[in-house]
């Protein structure tokens, strides 16, 4: 019961086209789970299956340990990438309608809407039509409608598109706050910097297959290759130093600043070799910096996808 959602060998075909093949995922409770992948990888199909918009051809999905069923619709909130609102409907009416479709009573929905309208500074837009609103304002309303029924699982597909940086930050804080309050969140995006900031777990889909999943910190650990950035201040000319280092290690990206007598480079070490390397460097000059290169989510993303393409 530590998982809010478990997918077991889920496959889905549209005619000849395979959208998902044999996907298994375990999404822990109360975490932010990043669902990543290039366009057409099958993210949206997977999300639609979780939302019971489409159904898998084979495989099963479990929500809180029970097979996914109609009773779970009210416990899931979904902000699709392709989103919108009825243009000619009033803001308040529309929000009420969508909340009631998720099973909230009218009075309860009204109360919560009031709270959220104040919280996100939407103000007296209740009786305005959507077409009179700015895009950012409409997105805020969309966000409110998604979280209003306090679902156990929230699914955000590119939640920050359409927001200016200030409001994007605002929404990010709200998402974190929701997580604090115990909500589990699936987060699908291309924006890798937000993955770093938000996600504890990720899964990477490519061409309908899952090619990577797990805790982000574990994945990062697995992807670091003992590569270090080094800055050395040399007492004399550099040539001999670099050559002697190159005898022992692979050095790349070297650059030398003559004025400062500073040598910067990247070096590849064997496993468990940092102390020895530091000893060697210490003898050559003053170490200004020595830090391990930890791959960003973006690097991992590109690296794995490219590796998959080259296969």
């Amino acid at each position: 019961m530590n998982h809010i959602l478990v997918a077991e060998n889920v496959s889905k075909k549209f005619g000849e086209h395979t959208a998902l093949s044999n996907i298994s995922l375990e999404i822990p409770k109360n975490c932010i789970y990043g669902l990543l992948g290039p366009n057409g990888a099958g993210k949206t199909t997977l999300i639609r299956i979780i939302n019971q918009i489409t159904h898998p051809d084979t495989g099963a999905v479990y929500f809180n340990g029970k097979p996914l069923g109609p009773e779970h619709i009210a416990t899931i909130g979904y902000l699709p990438e392709e989103r919108g609102l009825y243009k000619s409907m009033k803001v308040g009416e529309q929000a009420l309608y969508l909340a009631q479709l998720k099973g909230l009573s009218k009075t309860e929905a009204k109360k919560r809407l009031k709270y959220w309208f104040e919280r996100l500074e939407i103000g007296d837009w209740w009786n305005k039509k959507i077409q009179e609103l700015s895009k950012g304002m409409a997105q805020k309303i969309q966000f409110i409608v998604t979280v209003l029924h306090e679902p156990e699982l929230l699914i955000f597909d590119e939640p920050f598109s359409g927001f200016d940086p200030i409001n994007a930050n605002r929404i990010k804080d709200e998402i974190l706050e929701l997580k604090e309050r115990g909500t589990s969140i699936i987060f699908s995006t291309h924006r890798m910097e937000s993955v770093e900031e938000l996600c504890e777990y990720i899964a990477l889909l490519h061409k309908s297959e899952k090619i990577l999943d797990g805790k982000l910190s574990d994945i990062k650990k697995a992807y670091k290759n003992n590569i270090f950035n080094v800055g050395l201040k040399l007492p004399m000319e550099k040539n001999g130093t670099l050559a002697s280092l190159q005898e022992k290690y692979t050095i790349t990206d070297q650059e030398y600043n003559e004025k400062e007598n500073q040598l910067n480079f990247t070096m590849q070490l064997p496993d468990e070799h940092t102390t020895a390397a530091l000893d060697l460097l210490k003898a050559k000059g003053n170490i200004n910096h020595f830090n391990e290169v930890i791959p960003s989510a973006n690097d991992i993303f590109i690296q794995t996808v490219n590796a998959k393409i080259n296969e």
Binding site: N51, I53, I76, R83, G84, K87
Partner: peptide, 18 residues
Amino acid sequence: IEEKTTRIIEVIISSVKP
């Protein structure tokens, strides 16, 4: 068609059956 072009459709069918 209106629901398709305003893209509200996916929001709605995550709550109700098509």
